[in-house]
Structure formats: C-alpha cells, structure tokens
Computed example of a mutant assay.
Amino acid sequence: MRTDREGQQAEQGELLMAGSTAAKAESVHTEARTSDVEVLARTDSDVGQQYELARTKVRKRRFAEALAALEELKMADPFHVKGHLLRAQTLQALGRMTESRSLFEEILSQYPDYSEAYREYGCFLLSEGAPEAAQAHLLKGLTLNPQDAFAHALLAEVYALTGRKEQAFLHLEIASRFRTEEIRYFEVYARVLSRLEELTEEVHFLKEAVFTHADNRIAKAHFKKAMRAQRREKKGLPVFMRFLRVRS
C-alpha cells in the first residue's frame, strides 16, 4: 500500500498532468477561436472590396462589369442589402426597368426598415413619371431617416413638378441643413431651384447654403455645372439668372 506521502505525490502528479492537458486543450480552442475571427474578418473585408469594385464599375458606367461583380458579391453574401440595391440601380441604368422595379420591391419587402431603399425606389418612380408613388416612398424613407438630404431634395422635386412650390422650397431648405457627398443630390437641387424662378432671393439663399455644406471640391464643381446647365435652359429669365449666378 502507498504511504500518505506517496499518495499526495501521486495526486499532485495527476493534477499537474490534468492541468497541462487542460491548458493544451484551452490553447487549441483559443487558436481555433482566433482562427475563426480572422476568417470572418477576412471574409467581411473581401465582401467590402467586392462591393466597392461594383460601385467603381457603376461610376465608370461599365454596367455589365458591375453586374458581374454584384453577382459574385451575392454569392459571397446573399444578405448584402447595399449590393442588392446597387444591382437594382444598375439594372435601371441599363434600361431594364421591369427587372429593376421587381428588385426594388423585393428589397423593400425583405428590408422594410431600410430607408435608403425607399429613397432610391422613390427616385426610380420619379424618373418613370409617377410622382405620387414616388412621394409616398420618399415620405416613408424620411420617416425612418429624417436627415437624408437627398430624399428631401427628391421630395422637393416631386412638389415642384406638381405645382406645390412652397412645399418644394421647404424641403430644399430642410435638405440644405444636412451634409451629403451624393453627387445626384446636387443635380436634383439645381433642377428644383430652376423651377422656383419667382423666389429669387430665397433661391440665392439656398444656393449659398448648399455651397456651405458641400465638403469637397468635386461636389461644389458638380453643383456649379448643374446650375450652369439650368441657366442655359432658362435664358429667357435674366432676373432669375442674376440671383443664380455662382461665384467662382
């Protein structure tokens, strides 16, 4: 039989072995967890890069290549809502309106709290000559995100097109309070300003507000370009054009 001392030594040895085994197991599990985190981070990075690639293709108007990139993105992440939305916009740019409309509606069905989808579908409907339907979607999007400058500008265009110029001016004024680098915003803003020709002083104030909130030269240059385009279309309104003159 073992003495008490021998028993204690044996017990200590077993505890040391167990501790070593547990430490090794914990080390393995920790390495596995670290590996999983690294894989997830790498996957997220790849998805982000694929999305940015698609956006670049769209900006360069290489729409077929953009769709190919978006298809790869969909396979990597079927729930990438921004990718789905960009695909709907790309289909619209290609003139595939039925497919674009169907995808917009599918996105809104699956992501009913995604304000940007309501804004972009409202933009689509406005381009299709359906201002009332566009208004409903833009208002829904603004309920979810009241600080969406582009949505306010689009809603202002709806009101301007339907003869509600006071409401159009109101939403232009609200839009001017928020910053955005969305180039289309400046195009829409210039178009709506050109429809408010009798509000000369107010238009001048809003023009200055837009310049104050444009953070980069590209946005300001684009707004100048859009305003010049509107001036060319409104040559018969010299007083209005004097107030719209953009300072260099």
Rank of each mutant, 00 (worst) to 15 (best):
Y51S: 06
Y51F: 15
A54P: 08
R55T: 12
R59I: 09
R59W: 09
K60R: 12
R61Y: 07
R61K: 15
A66M: 07
A69N: 00
A69H: 01
L70R: 08
E72G: 13
L73V: 07
M75G: 06
M75T: 14
A76W: 04
A76R: 13
D77N: 14
D77T: 03
D77C: 05
P78M: 00
F79A: 12
H80I: 09
L85S: 05
L86G: 03
L86Y: 07
R87W: 11
A88N: 00
A88Q: 02
A88S: 06
Q89S: 05
Q89A: 05
T90V: 10
T90G: 08
L91M: 10
Q92P: 01
Q92T: 15
S100G: 04
R101W: 02
S102D: 14
S102C: 00
S102A: 15
L103D: 01
F104H: 02
E105W: 01
E105F: 02
E106K: 12
I107P: 10
I107C: 04
L108A: 05
S109R: 15
Y111H: 15
P112N: 10
P112K: 09
D113F: 11
D113W: 11
Y114P: 11
Y114H: 12
Y114M: 08
Y114I: 09
E116N: 06
E116A: 07
A117G: 03
A117V: 03
A117C: 04
A117R: 02
E120W: 05
G122Y: 04
G122R: 04
C123D: 10
L125E: 08
L126N: 03
L126R: 06
G129C: 04
A130H: 02
A130C: 00
P131W: 01
E132H: 00
A133N: 00
A134N: 01
A134R: 02
Q135C: 12
A136C: 03
H137Y: 12
H137I: 01
L138I: 12
L138A: 11
L138K: 05
L139S: 13
G141K: 05
G141T: 08
L142R: 07
L144S: 06
L144N: 02
L144H: 09
N145K: 12
P146Y: 07
P146N: 11
D148H: 04
D148M: 04
F150D: 02
A151H: 01
H152D: 06
A153Y: 01
A153K: 05
A153E: 00
L154G: 00
L155K: 07
E157C: 00
E157H: 08
V158W: 02
L161F: 06
T162N: 10
G163E: 09
G163W: 03
R164P: 01
R164L: 10
R164T: 07
K165N: 15
K165V: 13
E166T: 14
Q167N: 13
A168K: 05
F169P: 01
F169W: 11
L170F: 14
H171G: 10
L172C: 09
E173S: 15
I174R: 11
A175W: 04
A175I: 10
S176E: 08
S176Q: 10
R177S: 12
R179N: 03
T180V: 07
T180A: 01
T180S: 14
E181I: 05
E181N: 09
